Amino acid sequence: MTADTAPHAPIVAFRGLGLAYERAGTRNVILSNLDLTVARGEFLVIVGESGVGKSTLLRVLIGLAAPSSGTVDLATRPGCRTPMALVFQDARLLPWRRVIDNVAFGLENSGLSRAERRAKAGEMLALVGLGDLAQRWPHQLSGGQRQRVAIARALAVDPDVLLMDEPFSALDAFTRKDLHGHLLALWAETRPTILIVTHDVGEAVALADRAVVMRPKPGRLDETVRLGSPRPRDPASSQSEAAARAILAALDRSLRPAEAQSAAAPAGNWW
């Protein structure tokens, strides 16, 4: 396998990345020799089977886990206040704060006054379509609305890189599609670099510039599928269906032993 490269100026670069830990005298290798570059403003989706190390890769990038080997380079804007923000699978809102104060939470050490922080939070809530719910409590929101608040909170700090760890997996299909539209609109307006982890192939097809497929045991980059059609994308179009088949086939190949890669066996049933 060769290292994957992205066109234009890179903002994120993993070089020979490895992560391992010792447990009960056994060395567990989670990531090994992973090379990946991400271009500024790119929308990258990471797919692979459960436990392959997708979420770990995001945690290494944002500094929540330390790599055992290799390097991680981040080329953020000069003077950027917040290089990265992370949106989790669940919204993780503070139940004792109103919606607007949850969004403003990440700005508390920004040097802005309370009024300025709340004004910024209000702008972000308007961007995700929740401007009229600013004074509600988290328990008064639906699951999809809470996740929109989490996205607004991440965007409020103006990150160069937005990391999203399966942010829509717990939502129903209609809410998920609606949030895809909001996320794409926000990305088109503010142009952060986005790395999103998902198990949903349809989500990858709808959102990504590139889908990178990881191979397990240990986790490393295996294949890249480029999605060049304009967005929004019709999931029933021939281009979307072809992209979905390409990702599914790559996922199937990622689960075969390395020695079987050269064999012309039919793809398995990953899905």
Rank of each mutant, 00 (worst) to 15 (best):
G129T: 05
L179T: 03
L251F: 08
P266I: 12
A265T: 13
A188T: 00
P235D: 01
I11T: 05
L57K: 11
L127E: 08
P159Y: 03
V205C: 03
L94G: 10
D178L: 14
R92Q: 10
I151H: 06
T76I: 15
D101I: 07
L184R: 08
A115F: 13
V72W: 13
S55T: 07
L179F: 04
L163I: 09
A3L: 05
L17V: 10
A206T: 06
G144I: 11
A260E: 14
R118I: 03
A6S: 09
R117K: 14
D209K: 06
V47T: 15
W96P: 02
P266F: 05
V29F: 01
K54T: 04
F105R: 08
H180E: 12
L61M: 11
P78N: 15
S68H: 02
A13F: 00
F105I: 12
P218G: 04
L93S: 07
G219K: 00
T71I: 02
F88K: 12
K54W: 00
A150P: 15
R77M: 15
D90L: 01
I11N: 05
I62S: 13
T37Q: 07
S169M: 10
V212S: 12
S68G: 15
R176V: 03
E116P: 11
L64D: 08
E223Q: 13
L61N: 05
S229E: 07
A6V: 00
S240D: 01
A85R: 00
V12P: 10
G16M: 03
R15G: 03
A243T: 03
D90E: 15
V128E: 10
V52W: 01
I30C: 13
V201Y: 02
V103M: 02
T224R: 09
P10R: 06
L155E: 13
A265E: 10
G268Q: 11
A206D: 05
R191F: 04
D209S: 07
G53F: 11
L183M: 00
L74R: 09
S229K: 06
A104Q: 08
E241A: 12
P230A: 12
V213H: 03
N269W: 06
D101T: 08
S113C: 03
D178C: 13
L74N: 02
A267C: 07
A265K: 11
Q261K: 05
A170N: 13
P83K: 14
S113Q: 00
A258I: 15
M214N: 07
D234I: 02
S110T: 11
A6C: 02
L74W: 00
E203P: 00
R27D: 11
W271F: 14
S142K: 09
A211W: 02
G48P: 02
E189V: 06
I11C: 10
A126L: 03
L183W: 00
L133E: 05
R233D: 03
P232G: 11
T2D: 12
V157K: 06
P7D: 04
R245G: 05
G228C: 14
L31S: 04
L248H: 11
P235A: 06
L64E: 12
G268D: 10
L133N: 05
P95D: 12
H139T: 08
I62D: 08
Y21I: 05
R231N: 01
